[in-house]
């Protein structure tokens, strides 16, 4: 039996363990520790940046979950409707491509622009739901869960999370959602800025 000398000096062990533990704890996102410390950052700066990232998302979260956004990101295959986000009437369903089914496709009633008058369907040329194979569900998600979804390329279809910024800044459906009915709680510009802030400050997952 060959004896391997495993004796390492205790202090190095302790440092090694602490380092590993710290890294491991960071990976686990344990509160109190930054997930990453960027070059030039102290631990405190990182903590602050990450707190701001979370706060930015939590602010944007209320927009994502407001009816004008969430109604087209339902948990099921029926879009939501109205400020109380009830199931859309008339039996419409997502369909494989998110554009609806048969004689009840989204664009059958929703035109290329909003129609004037109460209870008339709003509209845009690209009016639709996400497709069945990538439904991009917002409904029912906590801030943490939603943020995690946005970081998942399979959810967003974005190779990089930075593409989310351009999406919320420029996508016509997003822009349109701020222009009619009961508005989301932030103006579009504010909302886009919050999303940018979240991403640029590390896309940190909120605690809950």
């Amino acid at each position: 039996m060959k004896h391997v000398n495993l004796r390492i000096r205790p202090r190095k062990w302790i440092l090694a363990i602490l380092f590993l533990a710290g890294t491991g704890l960071s990976i686990l996102g344990i509160p109190g520790e930054p997930t990453a410390i960027r070059p030039g950052e102290t631990r405190e700066m990182a903590l602050r940046r990450e707190a701001e990232s979370k706060a930015a998302f939590e602010s944007a979260y209320h927009v994502f979950m407001s009816p004008r956004c969430m109604n087209c990101h339902p948990a099921g295959n029926v879009p939501l409707q109205g400020d109380d986000s009830h199931l859309h009437t008339q039996g419409v369903r997502r369909g494989p491509d998110g554009r609806g089914l048969y004689a009840l496709k989204c664009k059958n009633c929703h035109q290329d622009a909003n129609l004037p008058g109460e209870h008339m369907p709003p509209g845009l040329p690209t009016w639709r739901l996400p497709p069945e194979d990538r439904p991009m569900v917002f409904q029912g998600k906590s801030p943490r869960e939603l943020a995690a979804s946005f970081k998942n390329a399979r959810f967003t279809g974005f190779a990089s999370i930075h593409q989310i910024i351009e999406h919320v800044e420029k996508d016509p459906l997003v822009l349109h959602s701020f222009t009619y009915g009961t508005r989301p709680p932030l103006e579009h510009g504010e909302f886009a800025a919050k999303v940018r802030e979240w991403v640029e400050k590390g896309a940190v997952l909120p605690d809950k």
Partner: peptide
Amino acid sequence: AAQCGACTIHLDGEAIRSCVAP
């Protein structure tokens, strides 16, 4: 108001509600 479907026609092969489609 696109609620009842009595106005359904086909536009390039898709059913649309002609009472609201300009």
